[in-house]
Design a protein around this nucleic acid. Structure first.
Lengths: 343, 343
DNA sequence: AATGGTTGCTAAATCGATTTAGCAAAACAC
DNA sequence: GTGTTTTGCTAAATCGATTTAGCAACCATT
């Protein structure tokens, strides 16, 4: 059982490949192919189990019907969910998605972008890392359809879908302050990503605006080194919490929060009585933890869907009303037990 | 800035496309291309930023250098980890991996298999669902390289990498029995997957062999409906535990365990004092939970690597010593707090 | 000067589809 | 019976690479 090509069917039925192609692509009547011949060709195609070679189709049509999705780490829940919604949404438009993880390594990111370009993907969906700015600019200048997600570069006119990091963080900070926490720390990561900076800015502003009665409130930030070992980072976190006598801590992203929980567990620090915890970005772990952890939820599905739509706009799939090419979606604070200490 | 092709370079430098192709593929000396010309072509290729069109290359060479990976659900941690190791390992052999999730839907699984075949992937890595048997047989009979992982069909001669489900489960059961638990329940899912059946068989055998002193020990199994709602399933679990007065429960796979934790949390059942918990397959949540959950760890990395190796063997990359085409790797029980009640 | 061997490069086929332009035969018009 | 249309189909170009077979031009040999 070898592979069956158009030519095989053509030879079997004694017609030309053109005719077979027309029939199989539903252009039989348009091309005035007789009903009898159509039936015959369809039947043998079916019998032989013909499956068109997409590689050849792509070469000829110039379309692969594939989108490239570049995320930080596909095994991180946030990106896995994002990938899933994107895949489902893209399918509705007849596109497949191939995912790649950059692991925050700009060399790897560049290599992957190049690889996707060589594979002739029809469009790019990217959660960029700091080193990718040049490459993305280049893609965009070559008129390749590109959409950025979750983060972007200031001053870049590329379409993107972001989250209202500032608003979500502010909301969470208000909650902590209202609950009477005064020594609130902020733990972030040194990737220079602008969504992290926005979250930190909201934190700083919230601290600065704290009622004067709580006079001693001060900005207290720990910036974790992304490439350090887990153990080293846990040590840092525990030292940060203890030496600053914090009563609450805000983690800027989900893996920091998870690492934090691991650290608190080892240090036997009780949540929320000894320390309140909030994390940006929800996760099964936070929902299931005892006590469950207050979080700022990101609109993952909406982000994925909107991103695909922005890309389809560029691919000429003119969905109705494609107005703004740069979106910002709202994040939502969800209060749970981790921020409600017993009176 | 349009796309640059071989032909463009050929015209710019005044040579034929053949020559350019030879040079860019490192066959310059083999084809006795003069050093001067080689330099010139390389220079202009570089200057124009030439990137070969992989679609064309694939069509011509008959190789896409792409492997298709079909898993149950890429957002499930186990499969995400598996995908990651596979991706890394495949890269060493010059292959890219595209992942797809079947979501245990055999229709979707078939559609994905067909799609991957049409895209001319060079090989398949599959965690099959029960409905895929026919399709996989067909692939194998067409001499397409295929490797199954995690599960397989009895009597199928397709290469695969499995886990010693029976051994891992037995080990966990011994542990529970030694700890004095007597009313041990088993919760599985109705997908008819053989790895689940093996785990259940180990459970049953362990119960049957329990010391006679613990006379009342009886097989107590709940089979969850995969497609039921989460709420319905939680209700089932809670009823199962209460009505059977269980003192320990074994979850056959990670999402059941996670669902179980959620359920126990809502029912305010304390672990391990009221109920001991063990789950097949580790997860961040189990490691971080308070108390942390005893699990049977699967050798994910090893499975991924071995699977790629089995596939490479079929692709003729003759790694040294490719002996057995059907592997079974050991699972390891890890005792944690969830199975050690206070005396 | 004829022969043979290198050297350095190219023409053309090929992979498997799509699509444009056009051809022969039949049908119709008058 | 001749001219025009319509019908039903096909030849050939094309996408962008790889690769086989082979052609000139030059050199060396006798």
């Amino acid at each position: 059982m070898k592979k069956v090509s158009l030519k095989d069917i053509a030879e079997m039925t004694g017609v030309s490949t053109s005719t077979v192609s027309f029939i199989l692509n539903g252009k039989a009547s348009e091309m005035r192919i007789s009903e009898a011949l159509k039936k015959k060709v369809l039947a043998t195609a079916n019998r032989l189990g013909y499956q068109p070679n997409q590689v050849a189709v792509s070469l000829r049509t110039g379309q692969t019907k594939i989108l490239g999705l570049l995320v930080e780490d596909i095994s991180n829940n946030f990106f896995a969910m994002l990938a899933k919604t994107i895949e489902d949404e893209a399918e509705k438009f007849g596109y497949r998605v191939v995912y790649c993880s950059t692991e925050n390594d700009s060399k790897k990111g560049q290599a992957l972008l190049r690889m996707l370009a060589q594979r002739q993907v029809d469009g790019f969906l990217i959660t960029p890392t700091s080193g990718m700015e040049q490459d993305i600019r280049k893609l965009h200048s070559q008129h390749k359809p590109v959409v950025l997600m979750d983060r972007c570069f200031s001053g870049m006119e590329v379409p993107h879908v972001l989250v209202n990091n500032y608003g979500g963080t502010s909301e969470a900070m208000q909650h902590l302050i209202k609950k009477g926490y005064t020594r609130i720390g902020f733990i972030t990561v040194d990737l220079g990503l602008n969504q992290m900076l926005e979250r930190e800015a909201a934190y700083s502003d919230a601290i600065a605006k704290m009622p004067a009665t709580k006079a001693k409130a001060k900005k207290t930030v720990l910036t974790i080194n992304y490439h350090s070992s887990k153990e080293e980072n846990k040590k840092q976190i525990s030292k940060f919490i203890k030496s600053n006598k914090l009563d609450a801590v805000f983690f800027a992203t989900n893996y920091l929060g998870i690492l934090g929980l691991e650290c608190l567990r080892e240090q036997q620090i009780r949540i929320p009585n000894e320390l309140a915890v909030v994390c940006f970005d929800d996760h099964d772990i936070f929902r299931l933890y005892i006590p469950d952890i207050s979080v700022v939820q990101q609109p993952v599905e909406e982000m994925g869907r909107k991103a695909v739509h922005l890309l389809m706009d560029q691919l000429g799939k003119e969905r109705t009303g494609s107005k703004d090419q740069q979106l910002r979606l709202n994040a939502k604070f969800v209060a749970r037990e981790s921020t409600s200490r017993e009176a």
